Computed example of a mutant assay.
Amino acid sequence: MTSEQEGREPKKLVSGQTNLRMGIDSHLEISRLAEASGKSMNEVILKAIDEVIEKVS
């Protein structure tokens, strides 16, 4: 649940950008998945992150 959903202000504002380091195999697989689905790598990674957040929340 986000801070807004909890009715409170976030402790620190963030830029919305981050650098992600990953192994070559993961990078290639995400690239393949993105191309096969007609999405960008960013969209594929964000969807995966959102799914994990939803699962653990």
Score class of each variant (00 low, 15 high):
Val56Phe: 10
Arg32Ser: 00
Ser26Arg: 12
Gly7Tyr: 11
Asn42Lys: 13
Glu35Ser: 14
Lys11Gln: 14
Pro10Ile: 02
Gly23Gln: 09
Asp50Ile: 08
Gly38Phe: 06
Ile45His: 00
Met1Gly: 12
Glu9Cys: 04
Lys47His: 09
Glu51Ile: 10
Val44Gln: 03
Asp50Thr: 12
Gly38Ile: 05
Ser40Cys: 04
Val52Pro: 00
Glu29Met: 11
Glu43Phe: 09
Ile24His: 14
Leu33Glu: 11
Leu28Arg: 10
Ile49Lys: 06
Gln5His: 02
Glu4Arg: 15
Ser40Asp: 04
Gln5Leu: 08
Lys12Gln: 14
Glu54Arg: 08
Asn19Val: 03
Ser26His: 07
Glu35Ile: 13
Asp25Gly: 11
Gln17Ala: 10
Leu28Pro: 01
Gln5Ala: 08
Ile24Lys: 09
Glu4Cys: 04
Thr2Tyr: 00
Lys12Asp: 05
Pro10Phe: 12
Ala36Gly: 07
Ala48Asn: 00
Ser15Asn: 06
Gly23Tyr: 03
Ile24Asn: 10
Glu54Ala: 08
Ser37His: 10
Ile45Ala: 09
Ala36Trp: 01
Gln17Leu: 15
Met22Arg: 05
Ser26Tyr: 09
Gly16Ile: 03
Glu54Gly: 05
Val56Ser: 01
Thr2Asp: 02
Glu6Met: 14
Lys55Ala: 11
Gln5Gly: 06
Ile45Thr: 10
Gly7Ser: 10
Lys39Ile: 02
Val14Leu: 14
Asn19Arg: 03
Pro10Val: 00
Gln5Phe: 02
Val56Cys: 06
Ile45Phe: 02
Asn42Gln: 14
Val14Pro: 01
Leu28Met: 08
Gln5Thr: 01
Lys11His: 15
Glu51Trp: 03
Glu6Pro: 01
Asn19Ile: 04
Ala34Trp: 08
Lys39His: 02
Glu54His: 11
Arg8Ser: 01
Glu35Val: 06
Ser26Asp: 14
Asn42Cys: 07
Leu20Lys: 01
